[in-house]
Design a binder for these strands. Structure first.
Lengths: 199, 199
DNA sequence: TGTACATCAGTGAACGCGCGTTCACTGATGTAC
DNA sequence: TGTACATCAGTGAACGCGCGTTCACTGATGTAC
């Protein structure tokens, strides 16, 4: 036996993993832009420069790809939002999070943005594992908001903040009228405002 | 000419309209429960006790049905929420709206609930007319919140409130864990709280 | 360095299926007289 | 009241198409000697 037991010869060991990542990245973009169901495996693989049969050498099913896609998309979204929060001085961190999330840039680029804001109602009807993954990712977003709020010495509820952010962004993408769409973004951003005394 | 010009003989004039309404009501339930794309015309018509060919005697396309479904669903949702608001004494009207919307009952019954909370990300990718209809309906929801806030003599932003409501309900439907799901509902309900003085 | 070989990532035909839409038709309903 | 007829809501076969998944295969890559 030329190879130690339990090990398999792997040539070009990186290649398989690179292809896999290419599929995930392609799917992450297209799912967020077009939805999950409308992006077929064959069509997706051809966008990645591959043929559809090879898909199942990397993923047991489309559902598993959706799960990986969700996690991969959120890693980037969380990193991006973290950077915005870290760059902001204490007292303005929640504001920075909310302003970054509810921006025209984010609204206009769902393919590079938050997976939840792009796909939440479709994902809510997916299999248990997909919903679990998305639940975890939304939880990470809540944790991010919680840290920002704590650093600000403020007292908003992070789950309220995230609910407002996702809702406002989703609505702003439905609304075609540019002015009205921006009003929903602006309304969502108000969730970051410090509490005001009642009149 | 036995009939006055411009008029066409119609026998059983109600029947056509009743069938049409049956299709809309069936679609309104199933779209909200299962999504739009997964509910095919043939499958939908058979749920209504009809055959698929007849669909196009009532609607030019599936898209037109979606528009009607959106409006019909919202009429009921708005009426239901209006009743809750009207039954609440001034000062508690926004609270009544938010509590009714972000209830476990609503979360558990998407097929009878808010069209936006059930389908917003799928609808955001639909044709212009669908998005226009949904924009209008969300606007009506905002108007409802605005009236409730005014009657309360309060000062929340109605668009912020609606964004939070839709976001929180959508998230609560993704989350499988019952306790965590309720936490998102409860967090969303906090949007109705009167502003607190800063510490 | 050159040859024989093993590996396995990727290929593409095929599967059964449901999609939205069209269209020639059927047959129950109501009217005319 | 009875018969002939017009209406038209609803029927169901058919269209071309894309879906997720399977599987026997090809051929480029790296190893062994």
């Amino acid at each position: 036996l030329p190879y130690p037991e339990g090990e398999v010869m792997r040539y070009d060991a990186q290649r398989r993993e690179r292809t896999r990542q290419l599929i995930v990245e392609t799917a992450a973009k297209r799912f967020r832009a077009e939805g999950i169901a409308p992006v077929g495996i064959a069509n997706l693989m051809s966008t990645a420069g591959l043929t559809h049969g090879g898909f199942y050498a990397h993923f047991p099913s489309k559902d598993d790809l959706v799960i990986e896609t969700c996690r991969a998309a959120f890693v980037e979204t969380l990193a991006y939002l973290s950077r915005a929060i870290n760059a902001a001085p204490p007292g303005t961190k929640l504001r920075a999070l909310v302003d970054t999330y509810l921006s025209v840039l984010h609204r206009n680029n769902p393919d590079k943005g938050c997976f939840a804001a792009a796909l939440i109602t479709e994902a809510a009807r997916s299999s248990g594992p997909v919903r679990e993954a998305l639940t975890e990712c939304i939880g990470a977003l809540v944790a991010l908001a919680k840290d920002a709020i704590r650093a600000d010495g403020s007292d908003q509820d992070p789950k309220t903040v995230i609910s407002t952010m996702i809702g406002a962004l989703a609505i702003s993408r439905v609304v075609e009228d540019s002015r009205l769409s921006k009003e929903y973004l602006a309304a969502g951003r108000r969730i970051a405002e410090p509490h005001q005394p009642p009149r």
